[in-house]
Design a protein around this nucleic acid. Structure first.
Lengths: 193, 193
DNA sequence: GTCTATAAAGGGATAGAC
DNA sequence: GTCTATCCCTTTATAGAC
């Protein structure tokens, strides 16, 4: 029961358009045009716009998981956290144009009072739990979750302001400041009882 | 040539709806319904949806200026900056529901590739310049702008995550952390030559 | 699985009566 | 200054031919 190639292409284009133009502002005609199919064919693969939003969120959840697992090849927890922070540098062009894909979708769905808002926020949940695991590995057992949320908030703030200002120097300076914060964070080596 | 009371009511309701539901998702019918006038009457006061967006941004620019001036009754620059940071606490209910009004509008207009994006970003410009003035008063002449942007970015990050998580404890904790950062910031008293 | 044609609703915007 | 009526376009969604 492999999903059709067309369905996958619709998901890819919808994912990109929801990010670049927003969910509400993206029409079926936009998606169909990007994929190169007719509007009618669209409904053979998805029964509604909400249905494709669900598929896009599934895609992003899966992509996030894959990315987090790939970062675990870095042995040192601080290097793993640094991999997260440096998404801002890697994706700087898109972030300066459209903000963060996770933050902006969650924000938009909150305003639309959309049923999928909590599922979109689950992507933050994956990052949160993974980051907390890294802070636990650094010995911050008691404040791991707060530290994880701190890194997430700092990153979201950088994305919002980088997009508003269209200023790469700002983005790089704030990423450096966040990395410096991480460097200063004491590593508490656990001593078994 | 005072603007009519109806025009003002339209601006107020549009401002609230653009914040709570988003610009794109708010229709003329929504605004007219909220104000209690017919759709046709709407066009007597504004010639297009973009026209009312301009008026809403004007409103927000003016409101921001008024707020910044009001904070200058606080003599100490750190107290002034604290006034800014504490908007997050004062407006926490709306922020947890809809995010920051400035950040979310700028983000949405960026995705829509809307001509008013840069004017919306000017609201950030007001905060940026005002905050930078306070950091200069604290003796941070050389990095005043960077510090101002840091505070703006931290605040935006808190707003995005507070909205995604719907978590007031997180919001309060991050506001406290930002205030602690401000407390730790050294005040460099200038010694004339 | 893909298409064309079309329905049904809602969007922005205009005309003209009152 | 406010209303009703209407236009035109786009939107989501469906029906049915190929």
């Amino acid at each position: 029961m492999s999903r059709s190639a067309t369905r996958k292409r619709i998901e890819e284009k919808a994912d990109a358009l929801f990010y670049e133009a927003g969910f509400e502002a993206t029409s079926f005609a936009d998606i169909a045009g990007a994929v190169g199919i007719s509007r009618g064919n669209f409904y053979h693969h998805f029964k509604s716009k909400d249905d494709i939003l669900d598929a896009v969120i599934d895609r992003r959840l899966a992509a996030t998981q894959t990315m987090l697992v790939s970062w675990e090849t870095d042995a040192a927890p601080k290097d793993r956290i640094r991999s997260f922070i440096r998404i801002l540098i890697t994706n700087r062009t898109k972030i300066m144009a459209f903000g963060c894909a996770v933050g902006t979708l969650t924000t938009e769905l909150a305003k639309l009072d959309h049923i999928a808002e909590s599922r979109a926020a689950e992507i933050f949940g994956l990052f949160r739990d993974w980051l907390a695991d890294q802070f636990i590995a650094l010995g911050h057992k008691d404040d791991a979750d707060a530290l994880a949320l701190h890194v997430l908030a700092r990153s979201q703030g950088i994305a919002v302001m980088a997009s508003a200002l269209k200023d790469e120097a700002f983005l790089r300076a704030e990423v450096s400041a966040l990395e410096a914060w991480l460097d200063r964070l004491p590593v508490q080596t656990s001593t078994k009882d």
